[in-house]
Design a protein around this nucleic acid. Structure first.
Lengths: 340, 340
DNA sequence: TATTTTTGTTCAATCGATTGAACAGACAGC
DNA sequence: GCTGTCTGTTCAATCGATTGAACAAAAATA
């Protein structure tokens, strides 16, 4: 009458079978008779048997656990990605172990070790922005543990990645502003040494070129893209008398700062200056006027990352094929840029 | 020259020791000589040994995995709670397996089974709001797996829980409005059959009583607390000529709806009507005027939940002591209610 | 020197499930 | 009746680490 958990051998004993027969019955092994299978099922239910995944994982070398590393789970974008990942892997019977790097390379490394030791079947990761060396990624790969990176990725060919099409996102945003009749568009850019921000700036420039709008370098202002940065850039633009009629910011926070400063000066958005941001942060619909932006499809990104990873997991042993998925962005037009 | 992972016996073989000696050396067993310990460490490093937590977990009956169930990870509050939980359990060498119930009792049950089968050492859960039966919780408890509930809890004494002090939160919000000179405060309440909303309504009423402000039942409007509900309630209040000079909403979304509708009618916030919400949603600082609200301290709640859980984990075997933690709320005064 | 204690290590069982090989019985074909 | 194929089941090893008991050698005590 022990309170211990029921094991496979308890069922075996109760039915006068061998543990292996029970295991096979439970796993629908073809060589087990229907009668035995049914008896086992019944007895399992009766004894309230619950499989011990750990034991199976140890034996099979497959834990059905996926490790996830994000900079911070309470950033909406990453939470959406996690949601997407979960929805896919759950369907296939996997569970997610989530860890946070707090944007610290050092913690990222620790987390990877922890995940590896827990014998996860694969790892999905968005790099900390302090990460500059990739030894820890090499480690994952050398152990032949499937790896997929998303959003923040180093530019290398031997890792599967999922990113958004920053260039295209910038193109649609800028096109939209031009269509709304804007000609002097200020671009609040991110640090241009970082690929995504460079791509966004390029998209912006190419649209101007396409529409024969002369390019003026003073209209691209790189910054850290915080709300304060947005405010300062607008101040600068107004002081320089740039006569802008639109702002395309590479982040919603900078866009918001811009809107605040414009309002401060009594400049009407979108009538006098139209504004478009980037990332579709949660506050977009709530600000006044609601903020037009470029959506990054976090959930979808997570789903793709999970799919790529599971594909690698299933082809365990075979040579890994690296895939790059570039997701289209979505322009969300709200009040801050709608003039018509 | 196999690419296989190094195990404890590989180290043993290389040093002409037994696997058990190696295991003990690695675990700082007192009976192992210093010399051996050092040799083992060195060889472990050289062979790039990485422990297999699964194997240890199986043997020791302790996985160092904590299961978390939240309705949805992409709701900011739950993400913060998860962050808090992680910060505590990571310190103690645990990792978190996160699952989402999507607010479906059925999925909650499935997730619990999955977590139990994965042999988690404990479970932290916020119930789905469709959950009305508690058999699945009983199951966890009958297996003597530590369990802590937070935020959404059934009212029972035999489970440890962490919740916020809804009553106190409502009291501070209402007190604040009275201090700002408001006398006719509309309360946008949640469904009053749900405990937290009832407590908030009580806090509101008690403050009025304390200040000898006559209570008028038409000033309490229960709803689903969405933004639309907020809009509708204000419409109703204005149609009834209630002459309100403040709104205390039991959710930020409803508060936002209220502000929108007031703006629509040309009523100034906070000058004519002051507004306070509840929950401190992410958009609060970004709306115009920024929204005063009651903070629920998600991270802190997660930290407490984790602490309670770990305490139970450590006292494994002993009788579980159930604890209830009620966290204080924090009034955040922003522009929507500041008149002075 | 004999005896006890301490120290360092090995032995063997164990956690719970899985899996290929082995085996016995039923049945079919010739 | 002999050989061969199927079926249904058991055997035994295995995944990798842990742990109490056992044991030999060294050190301490008498």
């Amino acid at each position: 009458m022990k309170n211990k958990k029921t094991t496979i051998s308890d069922i075996a004993k109760a039915l006068n079978l061998s543990p292996s027969a029970v295991s096979k019955a439970l796993n629908h092994h073809p060589r087990i008779s229907k009668a035995t299978k049914e008896a086992v099922q019944r007895m399992a239910a009766e004894l309230q048997y619950e499989p011990n995944h750990l034991a199976a994982a140890l034996r099979k070398g497959k834990s059905h656990l996926i490790g996830i590393i994000v900079p911070a789970i309470d950033i909406n974008f990453f939470a959406s990605v996690v949601k997407g990942i979960e929805s896919i892997i759950n369907q296939e019977g996997y569970n997610a172990i989530i860890t946070q790097s707090d944007d610290l390379a050092e913690k990222e490394i620790r987390n990877i070790d922890a995940l590896l030791n827990t014998q996860v079947d694969g790892i999905i990761c968005s790099l900390a922005n302090t990460t500059s060396e990739y030894d820890h990624l090499e480690k994952i790969m050398s152990k032949e543990v499937p790896l997929v990176l998303f959003d923040r990725t180093p530019g290398r060919a031997d890792i599967s990645t999922v990113v958004i099409d920053d260039y295209q996102g910038a193109v649609s945003a800028t096109e939209h502003l031009v269509e709304e009749g804007c000609q002097t568009i200020l671009h609040l850019a991110g640090p241009l040494e970082t690929l995504p921000y460079r791509l966004r700036a390029e998209g912006y420039q190419d649209v101007l070129k396409k529409h024969n709008i002369p390019f003026r370098s003073e209209l691209i202002m790189p910054s850290g893209l915080t709300q304060t940065d947005g405010i300062n850039c607008i101040k600068k633009a107004l002081n320089l008398n740039l006569a802008i009629d639109a702002v395309f910011a590479a982040s919603d926070h900078a866009a918001l700062g811009a809107m605040r400063e414009l309002a401060e000066r009594g400049i009407k958005v979108p009538e006098e200056v139209a504004v478009v941001g980037f990332s579709n942060e949660g506050f977009g619909p709530f600000v006044e006027p609601s903020l037009s932006t470029v959506d990054q499809h976090g959930t979808q990104m997570g789903e793709w990352a999970a799919k790529l990873l599971l594909k690698q997991c299933e082809n365990k042993g075979k040579k890994i094929k690296y895939e790059k998925v570039v997701l289209p962005t979505d322009l969300i037009v709200r009040s801050s840029s709608r003039r018509k």
